Simulated assay, not measured.
Amino acid sequence: MPQMAPINWLSLFIMFSLILLLFNVMNYYSYSPKSNNIKEINKISSLPLNWKW
């Protein structure tokens, strides 16, 4: 639609950018990791690495 005014394209770009930013921020802060997996992670990381080359 090239007949649209440039200010309309600018407002659409700003609106899309704000919605995308809001969506990403909400997804980032809504993630809550489980704290009971820390023991399992430490147990896995303490295992010796046996490379079979």
Rank of each mutant, 00 (worst) to 15 (best):
M1F: 02
M1Q: 07
M1P: 00
P2S: 06
P2M: 12
Q3R: 15
Q3I: 03
M4V: 01
M4H: 03
M4P: 00
A5E: 10
P6Q: 07
I7G: 00
N8Y: 09
N8L: 10
N8S: 10
W9V: 13
W9E: 14
L10E: 03
S11T: 06
L12A: 07
L12I: 12
L12T: 15
F13G: 08
F13D: 09
F13A: 14
I14C: 12
I14Y: 13
I14R: 07
I14W: 15
I14V: 11
I14T: 15
M15A: 07
M15F: 12
M15Q: 04
F16D: 00
F16I: 09
S17E: 10
L18E: 10
L18N: 15
I19D: 00
I19Y: 02
I19C: 05
L20H: 05
L20Q: 09
L20W: 00
L21A: 09
L21R: 04
L22D: 11
L22F: 03
L22W: 00
F23P: 01
F23E: 04
N24C: 03
N24Y: 02
N24H: 05
V25R: 00
V25H: 01
V25G: 02
M26F: 00
N27V: 09
Y28E: 06
Y28M: 08
Y29F: 05
Y29L: 01
Y29V: 01
S30E: 07
S30K: 05
S30Q: 11
S32K: 07
S32F: 06
S32R: 07
S32N: 13
S32H: 10
K34Q: 09
K34G: 13
K34C: 03
S35Y: 11
N37D: 15
N37M: 06
N37T: 15
N37C: 08
N37Y: 04
I38T: 09
I38L: 08
I38D: 02
K39M: 07
E40D: 03
I41R: 14
I41N: 04
N42P: 00
N42Q: 11
N42K: 14
K43R: 11
K43G: 05
I44S: 06
I44C: 04
I44D: 03
S45G: 07
S45A: 13
S45N: 14
S45Q: 09
S45T: 04
S46R: 10
S46E: 09
L47R: 05
L47H: 06
L47W: 04
P48Q: 14
P48I: 02
P48W: 05
P48Y: 08
P48A: 11
L49W: 15
L49E: 15
L49F: 12
N50R: 10
N50H: 10
N50L: 15
W51I: 07
W51P: 00
W51V: 09
K52P: 01
K52L: 10
K52V: 13
W53Y: 12
W53D: 15
W53E: 13
W53T: 08
